[in-house]
């Protein structure tokens, strides 16, 4: 059970209301950027004649949360993936690892933070929808339970076979995301990476990390064993040499 946003790019009119609302809620300078930045957590891009929003997809099993060495990222029970700037050491592994290349950094500051959409977690805690969804005049973005939104999306695909690419972006990408997209043109043309694995990415590193206890215990036994054998061999050689010396002396 988690909250989600469904973005239907066929409905978006490119009015930028969501951008303005996002900036106001997050206290960011009002400028119309078309690329995500430390000052823009949500942008609207025009690609292939389509308006498409770009913001954090809030993965079900977030890569950023798994790679962060100090646990600065966390997926909340309600769905949003949030960031605690007080923990962050600034290694930027989250930015490297994010399959959708979402997190941005305050490069110009001496004490920078990672910046990204919070899915308005503070507003959600007060029972309010994310500011971007509330601001949308045409319901191109809607907010609700993930299951319900998936059902809505499937319905739209079923009812309009030719109007949509028959794919819900985010249903399975990177193990599934809380933000879902519908489109009339191939998602790649909208700038979505097409080669994101369907498995949650943290499983890729966990496969190796889970072997560490075995490597350590087997390695310790192996090294200890080799040391014991080689030092025993040296002892024996030493003793034999001594015996020889003795018998030689007698």
């Amino acid at each position: 059970m988690s909250k989600s946003i469904l973005v239907d790019t066929t409905k978006c009119i490119g009015c930028m209301s969501c951008v303005a609302a996002c900036k106001e809620t997050n206290g960011l300078p009002q400028n119309e950027e078309t690329e995500l930045s430390a000052d823009s957590f949500n942008v609207v891009q025009s690609r292939a004649g389509v308006f498409v929003r770009r913001f954090c997809l809030h993965c079900q099993d977030p890569t950023c949360a798994s790679v962060c060495p100090v646990g600065a990222f966390m997926r909340t029970a309600a769905g949003p993936v949030v960031y605690d700037a007080d923990r962050c050491i600034g290694c930027r592994y989250c930015m490297m690892a994010c399959p959708f290349s979402i997190p941005r950094y305050e490069w110009k500051l001496a004490l920078p933070r990672v910046r990204k959409c919070t899915m308005c977690a503070p507003r959600q805690a007060q029972g309010l929808p994310p500011a971007c969804v509330e601001a949308c005049p045409v319901q191109a973005s809607i907010f609700g339970e993930r299951d319900e939104l998936l059902a809505v999306a499937e319905n739209r695909l079923r009812e309009n076979h030719t109007g949509y690419v028959q794919h819900i972006y985010g249903e399975h990408e990177a193990g599934g995301t809380s933000v879902l997209f519908l489109s009339a043109v191939p998602f790649e043309a909208l700038g979505f990476p097409a080669n994101v694995p369907q498995d949650p990415l943290p499983t890729f590193t966990y496969r190796v990390l889970s072997k560490i206890p075995t490597v350590v215990s087997a390695g310790a036994v192996l090294l200890g064993g080799i040391w014991w054998i080689t030092s025993r061999r040296a002892e024996v050689a030493e003793a034999e040499k001594n015996d020889l010396d003795k018998s030689g002396g007698e």
Partner: peptide
Amino acid sequence: MWNPRSVMF
């Protein structure tokens, strides 16, 4: 501040 799931950790 631990995160044992992280390779970086």
